[in-house]
Amino acid sequence: MRLIIAILLTLMPISGTFAQMLAFNIEAPPELNVTVITDGVLDYGNLLQNQGLVQIMLNNPQTEVISIEGQFNQNVRVTITPPAALQLDASNTLPYTLGASYANQGENNKGQAISFNGSNVATFRIKEGGAPQGGPRGGGPPTATAYLYLYGDITVGNVNAGTYSGILNIFVEYE
């Protein structure tokens, strides 16, 4: 009989109320600070009719440079919407092919740049290779700066003389 009571007590659900205090501290990464370091115009200069392929390469001085400052250990996604062509008017266009790279080792150094490889989108960590020295005032994870390089090719065919233009739209966000 004692054994049966003991087994019943063991199998009975243990009732009771338990409470636990809970506190979250959800920290948002610091806002991305995107700055166009260069003049904001990818300028191919003066070109001749039927000149053919004209390239601004990564290492050319005309390349546009953009800095992206944010929390060093966060990934950012950069989405570029290039124009299909620079336009004088509807019937006079210069086809454009985007060239883009990023450098995320903490330096504005084209030698460290990694190509988007033909894509218009790239996701990368703001800083590879460890945390930068120091941190923002008031604590929090340190920030770092990555660099975006924009360049590309145009083709000049039998088009009218004039000034051709287009817009590269860029969106940078934390992944």
Partner: peptide
């Protein structure tokens, strides 16, 4: 976070 930044770069060429 929806932190994000949208901006534009002009592209230009002059054909002579």
């Amino acid at each position: 976070s929806s932190s994000g930044d949208r901006f534009s770069i002009g592209v230009s060429a002059r054909v002579v």
